[in-house]
Simulated scan of single mutants.
Amino acid sequence: MPQSEPTTGVQSAEAAPAGPIIRFDKVVKRYGDNVVLRELDFTVDPGERVTLIGPSGSGKTTILRLLMTLETVDGGVIWVDGDPLSHMERNGKLVKANEAHLRRVRSRIGMVFQQFNLFPNMNVRRNITEGPVHSLGVSKDEANQRAEELLELVGLSDKIDAHPTQLSGGQQQRVAIARALAMRPQILLLDEVTSALDPELVAGVLDVLRDIAQSTDITMLCVTHEMSFARDVSHRVMMFDHGQIAEEGTPEKIFGDPQQERTRTFLKAVLEHG
């Protein structure tokens, strides 16, 4: 079914924010009669690390998919670094974005998915260098050097010529993280990146992400059920319920002194099964 034209109260690109790197302005997303996001407003500042928590179906992953333009908004506007992602300016008005505009703004964003999505016919080196060479116009030498640096960062320097089938799930996910970073995004989206891993492999991937969080100024927007990870890396935690932010605050506040009963109930259930 074709998407209806998104509606927005924002009429001019001059309204673009100067500060936040991500801004959701009354964003609506629905699937049929199911409204997943309900006029959602929130911002993320450059370099901020924000974790989204909440029950399945509360809209967390939908937010990441909208930012990656894997889904389209049904209302409102998403801004990325001051530019509208879901819309573009034409004759002083905001209209639905075309593919060229989407690609330009989306190039500032990298995403690591639950499934690793590596190309099975390419070795690790090519998985990491293919995007920078063909999408960014980086030379092969520069892309190779960057791949080597990133593999050292994720602890897989010795696997540069291996194929994905020769790697464990945890190793594949670390390669996927390196591949996302190779595109030099301003924003890194992480969607339950440990959910497909055996429990003994989770810690290694989370350690890599902790290192990245502590050693770079990249903006991170993370969906996870790993509460200890959220506590360690986040500047801010947002609790979602039915497409809205039920509560938000520092990790110390959300995990140590949640104000909303819905947050307390969710955290109790997650921690009991963790």
Rank of each mutant, 00 (worst) to 15 (best):
residue 119 F to I: 14
residue 104 R to P: 04
residue 126 R to F: 14
residue 139 S to C: 07
residue 96 K to R: 15
residue 132 P to C: 11
residue 120 P to I: 14
residue 140 K to I: 13
residue 88 M to S: 06
residue 96 K to G: 10
residue 120 P to S: 13
residue 120 P to W: 15
residue 95 V to I: 08
residue 137 G to H: 09
residue 126 R to I: 15
residue 121 N to A: 14
residue 133 V to H: 09
residue 106 R to H: 03
residue 123 N to Y: 07
residue 108 R to A: 05
residue 114 Q to N: 04
residue 96 K to L: 13
residue 136 L to C: 08
residue 139 S to W: 10
residue 85 L to C: 02
residue 102 L to P: 03
residue 88 M to N: 01
residue 98 N to I: 04
residue 109 I to Y: 02
residue 102 L to H: 07
residue 138 V to W: 13
residue 108 R to S: 08
residue 137 G to I: 09
residue 113 F to A: 04
residue 122 M to E: 15
residue 124 V to Q: 07
residue 94 L to M: 03
residue 127 N to L: 13
residue 120 P to R: 14
residue 114 Q to P: 07
residue 130 E to S: 12
residue 94 L to N: 05
residue 99 E to A: 05
residue 121 N to I: 13
residue 103 R to M: 03
residue 114 Q to A: 06
residue 117 N to L: 09
residue 85 L to P: 06
residue 99 E to K: 07
residue 102 L to F: 08
residue 137 G to T: 10
residue 114 Q to H: 07
residue 122 M to L: 15
residue 123 N to V: 13
residue 135 S to A: 15
residue 95 V to W: 06
residue 105 V to G: 00
residue 102 L to W: 06
residue 103 R to V: 04
residue 92 G to Q: 05
residue 104 R to M: 05
residue 136 L to W: 08
residue 120 P to Y: 15
residue 106 R to W: 02
residue 107 S to Y: 06
residue 98 N to P: 06
residue 137 G to C: 08
residue 110 G to E: 00
residue 88 M to H: 05
residue 127 N to G: 11
residue 92 G to C: 06
residue 127 N to D: 10
residue 120 P to V: 14
residue 138 V to S: 06
residue 132 P to H: 12
residue 96 K to V: 13
residue 107 S to H: 09
residue 91 N to Y: 05
residue 89 E to H: 03
residue 124 V to T: 14
residue 92 G to M: 05
residue 117 N to A: 11
residue 87 H to M: 08
residue 117 N to I: 07
residue 138 V to N: 08
